[in-house]
């Protein structure tokens, strides 16, 4: 299956890939089913069946194998959108990686994440950082190996940013030639090319984004204790699915490791100029910490 969003394989020729994606048949029902919803099924062995009506059905197994049965052309962007989004999120839970609903950029050689719910401005923030010359690790889902020996690491995955047309317009990026995320959807894939960070980087700070209506309420404040745990748990991508898979203990263990990096609430005012200021402030804050 062609996956132009992913960087080309640079490992050893003929090496064993970490994750395998193939076209194939997906059973209607998983064995020893423990959860049955209209979209998600979970089997007794932890395998997941994820069905998007009209787009594709996915089988995710063992944290390393994804089988795709498309309901439309296999190379349609729609199929890849769900594959590289929710389906990949489920695979992370199976694998023991923590997927955070966050964008992530490289500043001063370290990974800085900005988490928050949909519509809070993660992708716009990511695009603003990239425009300022910083490298992207993730635009929507930041994958963390919390138990890496030297401390939590961010695993970069996808070198593109998904932006709605009005954001493209506001950032003065032309939509010409951009691939829509889905047929007839006003959201586009913006490739970041050389601005993609290809290697894993230590996670240095996580910000929880929140919008305020008045610039005077903008602030940056540390979150500790229960507050930090709760906000991080709330920012786990596909958390409910992870919990249904029995992964809550695993999530808590990962979050426990994340408490070693600063967790901050970042409240910023709406509007592009405020966003721009946020980018400058964050860059100044983390560049100073260098190597």
């Amino acid at each position: 299956m062609p996956l132009p969003e992913l960087p080309p394989w640079r490992g050893a020729e003929g090496g064993t890939p970490e994750i395998e994606v193939r076209l194939g048949n997906v059973p209607d029902q998983l064995p020893d089913i423990i959860h049955r919803g209209p979209i998600l099924q979970i089997g007794g062995d932890g395998s997941c069946r994820y069905n998007m009506a009209g787009v594709a059905c996915f089988l995710i197994e063992g944290g390393r194998r994804i089988t795709v049965r498309p309901h439309m052309a296999a190379d349609a962007p729609d199929v890849r959108l769900f594959l590289l989004g929710s389906v990949f999120g489920l695979l992370c839970h199976q694998r023991g990686w923590l997927p955070l609903h966050a964008c992530c950029v490289e500043i001063g050689g370290r990974a800085i994440a900005f988490a928050g719910p949909s519509g809070i401005g993660k992708s716009t923030l990511a695009a603003s950082f990239v425009r300022q010359g910083y490298r992207l690790l993730a635009d929507d889902v930041t994958v963390i190996d919390a138990h890496a020996p030297g401390g939590p690491l961010v695993i970069p995955a996808i070198g593109r940013i998904k932006l709605w047309r009005d954001t493209l317009d506001a950032l003065k990026i032309s939509a010409d030639g951009l691939e829509p995320c889905r047929n007839r959807m006003e959201k586009f894939q913006v490739p970041v090319g050389g601005r993609f960070q290809l290697t894993r980087l230590p996670l240095t700070a996580i910000h929880l984004l929140d919008r305020v209506s008045d610039e005077r309420q903008a602030e940056l404040l540390p979150l500790v204790g229960l507050q930090a745990v709760e906000t991080l748990l709330g920012a786990v991508y596909r958390r409910q699915a992870g919990e249904r898979m029995g992964k809550r203990p695993q999530m808590l263990r990962a979050i426990h490791r994340l408490l070693t990096v600063p967790i901050l609430a970042l409240r910023y005012a709406q509007g592009l100029s405020h966003l721009q200021q946020t980018v400058y402030r964050m860059a100044a804050r983390y560049e100073g910490r260098g190597e």
Binding site: G37, P38, A53, G54, G85, D140, R182, Q240
Partner: peptide, 20 residues
């Protein structure tokens, strides 16, 4: 819709979300 049905609302059209 996201929490109860694991629906990827971000990636869905309004019609798809409504149908669920």
């Amino acid at each position: 819709l996201e929490d109860v049905l694991d629906a990827p609302v971000d990636e869905m059209t309004d019609d798809e979300a409504e149908a669920l």
